Simulated assay, not measured.
Amino acid sequence: MKETSSSVYQFLARDRSAKGKFRVRDSGVECSQGVVFHAVDSMGRLTILVPLSTSEVGFVDWNSKALSLEFKSLEFHNELSPFLILQCTDDKLDSQFALLSDEVLDAIELEPTQALRATLSILDRWRRLFESDRPGILGSAQLAGLLAELSILERLVTSHGPKALVTWQGPNGNRHDFVLSECSIEVKATTNHNNMVVTIHGSKQLLAPENADLYVHAFQMEPSPEGTSVPEKIADLLALGVDRLDLLTKLDGAKYSDAHSKIYRSIRFSPMMDKAYRVGSTFPRITAETVYPPEVLEQLSNVSYSVDLGQLQSTPLDLALLHFQSVGGR
């Protein structure tokens, strides 16, 4: 099994190179012009070095908020050799850059005779994510909610494979967190030890989709140093084969920035209980179906209310039996 870029960079970062030099390690991937290297410079910046032929060298002077790309001749085996140098210039995004590095290496491994094109193609896909404005730091309650959503996603991916990521539609602006053929699922989390009271936002969040059921899947969690963090759950999903960029893009839509992952690793939760509830005719809710006249909801704003799920009968929901339509993806 190929070592991850993250672990290689951690090893290289233990010692600093001399100014103007790189500390390098063979990535285990070769292209037509030689070995591709992981590298860390004297300032600790994570780097990928892709060897090139002289004919491929061109003029590049490109920088974004967190990435630098340039052609440069480096001394290698006592002679100057041309390289494409892709570097992370913001250490807060080191873990994100490590995932980008993995993707670059995978692409070069598939097209070793087209290493430059493969690298630039991957960079073009990832560039927007590195340039996007970073959201603020999420609070404990927000992280608990995100961990709950990722836990449902992990179960779907385990049952249906990596393409189940397409069912996670909350970050895309859908009113429900997960959308499948037979139903939609709204995920809620509470860190209250004493009850399963969850907050509902708006008059449409518990409005069932047309010709499909709606479930609320609620998690009761407690903060615990032995628990699981959001970055760890993300790593679990990546290990299951979920596309790196697609997952990070979804997380960006959920206001999660990898730049804060070092902080988030220390915020952990242990599950106490999780149950699903079908939103049927007896489920307490405020929607156009339960308010008369329904038009009055259009005149209200910032509707928010709490539901005590502990007073309701849960409904078994086997995620392995659900279906969804895969769109795109790899």
Rank of each mutant, 00 (worst) to 15 (best):
F130K: 05
E131V: 00
S132F: 04
R134M: 09
P135C: 13
I137A: 14
L138T: 10
L138S: 12
G139T: 14
G139N: 15
S140D: 12
S140Y: 07
A141S: 15
A141P: 02
Q142H: 15
Q142F: 05
Q142E: 15
L143P: 06
L143E: 09
A144W: 14
A144Y: 14
L146K: 12
L147W: 14
A148D: 07
A148W: 05
A148Y: 06
A148C: 06
E149P: 02
L150Y: 10
L150V: 08
L150A: 09
I152C: 12
L153I: 03
E154M: 04
R155E: 13
R155G: 01
R155C: 01
R155T: 05
V157S: 05
T158Y: 06
S159D: 15
H160A: 08
H160F: 08
G161E: 02
P162K: 09
P162W: 05
P162Q: 08
A164G: 03
L165I: 10
L165R: 06
L165A: 04
V166E: 00
T167S: 07
W168C: 00
G170P: 01
G170R: 09
P171H: 11
P171V: 04
N172Y: 02
G173A: 10
D177T: 04
D177H: 07
D177S: 03
D177V: 04
F178L: 04
F178Y: 13
V179I: 13
L180R: 08
L180G: 03
L180Q: 06
S181P: 00
S181M: 02
E182T: 02
C183R: 09
C183N: 11
C183E: 06
C183K: 10
C183G: 06
S184Y: 09
S184K: 02
S184G: 08
I185Q: 11
E186D: 09
V187E: 05
V187K: 04
V187S: 05
T190S: 08
T190G: 02
N192G: 01
N192T: 08
H193A: 15
H193T: 11
H193C: 04
H193R: 15
H193Y: 12
N194S: 15
N195R: 15
M196W: 11
M196D: 13
V197G: 02
V197N: 11
T199C: 11
H201D: 14
S203L: 00
K204R: 14
L206F: 12
L206R: 12
P209M: 08
P209L: 08
P209H: 08
P209K: 10
P209V: 06
E210L: 01
N211A: 12
N211R: 13
N211W: 03
L214I: 08
L214P: 06
L214E: 09
V216T: 03
